[in-house]
Design a protein around this nucleic acid. Sequence first.
DNA 1: GAATAAATTTAGCCTAGCCTAAAATCGTTT
DNA 2: AAACGATTTTAGGCTAGGCTAAATTTATTC
Lengths: 225, 225
Amino acid sequence: MTLEVSSAVQDYAKAIYSLEQRCDGGAVSTNALAERLGVSAASASSMVKKLDGLGIVEHVPYRGVVLTGRGMNVALEVLRHHRLLERFLAEELGVPWDRVHDEAEVLEHVLSEELEELIAAKLGHPTIDPHGDPIPTADLKIVEPATVAMDGLEVGDSGRFVRVSDSDPEMLRYLGARGIAPGEPFEIVDKQPFGGPIFARFGDAGEAHPLGGRLAAAMRVEVGA
Amino acid sequence: MTLEVSSAVQDYAKAIYSLEQRCDGGAVSTNALAERLGVSAASASSMVKKLDGLGIVEHVPYRGVVLTGRGMNVALEVLRHHRLLERFLAEELGVPWDRVHDEAEVLEHVLSEELEELIAAKLGHPTIDPHGDPIPTADLKIVEPATVAMDGLEVGDSGRFVRVSDSDPEMLRYLGARGIAPGEPFEIVDKQPFGGPIFARFGDAGEAHPLGGRLAAAMRVEVGA
DNA sequence: GAATAAATTTAGCCTAGCCTAAAATCGTTT
DNA sequence: AAACGATTTTAGGCTAGGCTAAATTTATTC
């Protein structure tokens, strides 16, 4: 039951999925979609009409789109490809952490199901990618952890560092150089007032790292006991 | 100096290169190109005009095309991608010998130079692909061995099995199952008259294999001492 | 050298996705 | 409720790369 759609359709499904995750209000606006994909609003609008015809989304004119079950499967399929590839490129080929996203972005559209399976097996069927995001299972189930931005935490809070926004290579490099990787447990040990840095200790390291405003805002964490 | 061309242009360059190799007469006919690529002659003709404009080929109307230096580089670049990928898929991911070609066919167009280099390094900079065909070097040099079809040999002839035509998965499976791989030295030990099978011993195996007409015709060998 | 067969090119059309500019709709503000 | 700004949609066009059908050129055969 491979879903035969063009790579443009895959990109739209993926973007809609991601925007639905983010703003949990429901429908995704044409404008948000256009901006996300770097196309004009007119292009997004006409594509949305097509996606509706394909049964990928439900579109209420002027109201936005929602993924159908079928559309969700398209999105999760390509998301699985993307995240497996990121993991594979990082782990097996030593692609730098901040480059895996862009490489995976093009490969995800041409990965066959056979290759997907071979890669998953080679990696031992991993459940998270190098950014810490969950990899959908082969039957396209996924649990997105509920995360909050680290800059909203207070001293004494602790949890697990989940991921940093895909789109900032600089931050990925910065954290990578300090050995701070997704999955790490952490604890907030200090917080400066007036937008100053927040200090967090990761793993079992003795030393706490200062995390400035933009960085702390981009780091998503799962808060827990 | 990455050559920025569409994947259609890459496919044309690759096909022209391959046809130039085969029939060493010189120019490649529009018809042969069309048939090779599975498009109409009209499509090939209009694309050829475009390729000429891009400086990929020189086209003399009604006479055929010849790759330019630039076109040769496009072809060798994608050929390097293709053959490195075949090798990588077979060796690192265990893709069956008869499937590597089709997988590589789509991946070759989206492989970045960085990834190409990482893959080459991981494989130890191999010089032949799983079919026995030479892999162009990073600076796009290649030496295609002079081969003949095995069915033209006589008892007592010997040499090295180089490759079998890319396009026949059935033969690849058949040979693979018998442990006959590119690079193997061989010797002709018997030959039946009237188009009957030819018998060849491979490597240091004691037993000779019978190779029927179509198979022996598809197997390309380098004859030597 | 003329007729015909085969190869090649041209002409005209199609689809997917993108674009800009103009129209329509929505939501808000008076 | 009317008007304004923001969003969305429609209208019309563009490019890449296919297609078929018709014209043209080349090659061959009488």
